[in-house]
Every structure is written in C-alpha cells, then in structure tokens.
C-alpha cells in the first residue's frame, strides 16, 4: 500500500460514504471486525494452554485471561481489516467485510483496533500477569506489523512466518496460569505453526484467482499449483510428526494419541487425494482443496479438544502413571 492510499484509507476517503456523513455502523458491524470465527479457534487453543498448566487458575482469572486473548485476537483482526481494506474490496472472499461494504470507515476500524489492543494488553497485565500481557502484545504486534504490513504482500512465505501469531494462544494461556513458560506450551505453538501452511495453502489453491487479482503473492499465485501441492505434502508430514510430540513429551495420553492417529490418517488421505491424484474437473479439484481446508480446522479442534478433555479428567496423568 502506498502512502497516498494509506492516508486516504486512514481518513476514510476510500469508502463510499461521503466525508463527515453520520456513521451508520452498528455494534454488530464492529463485532464482525473481530473475525469471530478465527477468534473462537484462538480462544479454544488458549483454553488448552490454561488447562494443561500445572498451576490451577481461579475460574474468574481464567475467564479474564481468555477474554483478553479473545479481545487481542479480535483487535488484530480489526487492524488487519483496516490495513487490507483495499485488497479486501477486490477479493470475493472478503468483499462482504464491514469496511469494503462501507459500514465502517477505515479510521473507525483503526481506532477500534488500537483501543481494543491496548485495553486487552493492559487488562491482562493488571488482572492476570505481565508475562501473559507481554506475549499478547507480541502476538498482536507480530500479526499486524510483521504479517499484515510486512509479509502478506511481499512473499509467498507470508502465512508460514505469519502463522506464529495464530500459534501463540496456548503459550499465552499457559503463561496466564503459571507466570512462566515451559516445553509443553511451546510444543502446542509448534503444532499450530506447522498446521497453518497446509491449512491456508489449501484455501489459496481454491482462491488463487482471487489472490492474483488482489496482487497477494500467495504460493499458488507465485509458484504455481504443483509447487504448492508439494509444499502442502511436506508441511503435512511435518505437522503430523509434530502432532505426536505431546505424547512423546509425556503431557498427552491415550485419548489424544488415538485422536491424533485417526484424524492424522484422514487428513493425510485428503491431502494425498488433493495433491497426488489428478482431478478430472476444475470443480472437483476445488472441492478437494476445500475439503482439506475444512477438515484441517476440524483436525486442530479435535487435537485440542482431546488435550482439554484429558486435562479436565486427569486422563493424561493416569496414562503417564501407567507408562511410568
């Protein structure tokens, strides 16, 4: 984005609303800025960090930490939508977002995102602890400055490196509970980090034309379909290997192991179907890509759900004592 576009967007001139027109944005428009679906997965992985921590948190403190993680993730989403308003208006997938629709001006989104970021970090620091607040601040800054402003429009590795921001919630949750970091949350961060590339590249395969029109150098746009599929296979194998680490590190039990095996096998099957088998039609290839994208969400959800369930019922501890 050049400086002229940036200043036009900050001032709100890029929208269809006339200057100084009364704002028609409702509370639900602002809620849509938070990317609620992304927020729900972020909160879920944050819960796993809190639940796996050896220090029990007071339920109100845990809810406060989760609220701050959700608000921080939402703030990142709002700032992302502010900065990407120009390309969101071009891409079919994002055209219905509040700024391209003219419901919210970019300056409103910017103010909302900054205020929510500061509020979430300050609340986490004052009410929970400052390590968790620092990690939350790092996550928001990484997503906004490194991914959105730095990588997204410059390199096909954008979602690989930028994926770190989305991977951080388990570490924030753990830090909120313990005031420190350990191997366990870092394994979970690595798990989400390795999950991100196959997840997003499956979507990018389906939406390659959209990304090309907007000038976003996603891997299928820059390197082509074959290279993207090879990378999807590679990252899927690494992701499946990393999904075994919680068991090997001794903080996950049989339920997690069974879930990781079952979902991993299905995911690998879908990835191979997408990347190795030739699709007779374009529609079939798109369907396969969306199947990988959709199942990857379910896969991550299932892995973290099994970790949460084991932590809630003390199953991993039981399994640990059986193997000891």
């Amino acid at each position: 984005m050049n400086s002229g576009t940036l200043s036009a967007i900050i001032s709100g001139a890029a929208t269809t609303a006339p200057a100084h027109a009364p704002s028609l944005a409702t509370a639900s428009d602002f809620f849509a800025l938070l990317k609620p679906r992304v927020m729900s997965l972020v909160v879920f992985t944050g819960i796993a960090g809190i639940m796996l921590a050896p220090t029990a948190m007071h339920p109100v403190a845990a809810l406060t930490a989760l609220f701050c993680i959700a608000a921080g993730a939402g703030a990142s989403g709002a700032l992302n939508m502010w900065f990407d308003a120009d390309i969101d208006a071009i891409m079919a997938r994002t055209q219905s977002r509040p700024i391209p629709r003219g419901r919210i001006t970019p300056s409103e989104a910017l103010g909302f995102g900054v205020a929510l970021s500061l509020a979430s970090i300050a609340t986490m620091g004052v009410l929970v602890n400052w390590l968790a607040a620092g990690l939350l601040a790092f996550t928001i800054a990484f997503y906004v400055f490194v991914y959105t402003m730095g990588l997204k429009r410059r390199t096909p590795q954008n979602i690989v490196i930028g994926g770190l921001a989305g991977a951080m919630p388990p570490a924030i949750g753990w830090a909120a509970a313990t005031g420190s970091l350990a191997v366990e949350p870092l394994v979970l961060v690595a798990l989400i980090f390795m999950w991100t590339p196959p997840h997003f590249w499956a979507l990018a395969l389906y939406r390659a034309d959209d990304y090309a029109r907007a000038g976003v150098p996603m891997l299928p746009v820059v390197a082509g379909e074959r290279a993207t599929k090879n990378q999807i296979i590679l990252y899927t194998l690494v992701f499946l290997a990393v999904s075994a680490l919680p068991v090997l590190a001794g903080f996950a039990g049989l339920i997690y192991a069974a879930t990781a095996l079952a979902f991993g096998a299905v995911f690998l099957g879908l990835v191979l179907q997408l990347c190795v088998m030739t699709a007779a039609t374009r529609a079939l290839a798109s369907r396969r890509a969306m199947r990988v994208f959709g199942f990857s969400i379910l896969h991550l959800f299932a892995l973290f759900a099994s970790l949460i369930a084991e932590a809630a019922f003390g199953v991993s501890a039981l399994m640990g004592s059986l193997f000891a």
Binding site: A21, P22, S23, L24, T26, A27, S28
Partner: peptide, 16 residues
C-alpha cells in the same frame, strides 16, 4: 431517513 438510520446506529453503538 438517513438521520433515523444514523440515530439507530448511534443508539446501538452506545448501548454496546
């Protein structure tokens, strides 16, 4: 009218 829409939106934001 646009005014009534704006007032309704403002009310919704204020309530939130």
């Amino acid at each position: 009218t646009p005014e009534s829409d704006a007032a309704r939106s403002l009310k919704s934001r204020n309530r939130a």
